[in-house]
Design a protein around this nucleic acid. Structure first.
Lengths: 109, 109
DNA sequence: CAGAATCCAATATGATACTG
DNA sequence: CAGTATCATATTGGATTCTG
């Protein structure tokens, strides 16, 4: 799918095209504070298989949300961080976080 | 899954539990302006099968985001609208919409 | 019209083993 | 460590048919 052309008319759908699934939102959340290695990311996200995490990261890299840096070391080290575009999604994550807090607070009553 | 207990520690995940997929976001977007009948909703969302739309609406109803009103008429009429809780998600949709606009503007350059 | 039910295709995810 | 490859399973979605 070409992301530079044929964007949906609705801006919400445009956003969904880039982060319209659970995993990407979680990756975003965990990279927002800063760079992480693959293994750290895997652990902080919780229940992701290596396969899924790898695929999602590749996808986000392709979409320009994440950048990947490989270090020529043994054992290998690969660090992931958000691009400027990826960081620009923070307000959405903040809104989600805020709502989640409020929801939890109400439910506990 | 019980939504009143055992919420994830992370508020973002809490939010994902309730609207963590494409369809629910689109339903939210289309009900935010006001009540809609099933058929209208189906048309405004675009590419949803009846089956999927029905399932998603039931799920959102169960989670307290959507309310469903059946009119005892022939042919039947069923109207869907957002509950207060559903409407409280508006800021998230707004953030997504805003980001989508900005993204599109950049890409057109 | 709104939907339930059924069958089938497509996709997503998990588990495991292997490698530079 | 950070993958890739493969197989098996689970979940999701589409198409169709039937009904109050």
């Amino acid at each position: 799918m070409n992301i530079t052309n044929e964007l949906p008319a609705c801006p919400v759908e445009t956003t969904l095209m880039l982060i319209g699934d659970k995993w990407k939102v979680l990756i975003l959340r965990d990279l927002l504070p800063g760079t992480k290695r693959f293994g750290e990311l895997k652990k902080s996200i919780g229940n992701v298989s290596q396969k899924v995490l790898t695929a999602q990261l590749r996808d986000m890299e392709e979409k320009g949300l994440v950048s990947r840096e490989v270090f020529a070391e043994v054992p290998p080290r690969v660090e992931y961080s958000l691009t400027e575009l990826g960081q620009s999604l923070k307000p959405i994550l903040d809104a989600m976080s805020h709502w989640g807090e409020a929801y939890k607070a109400k439910k506990i009553v």
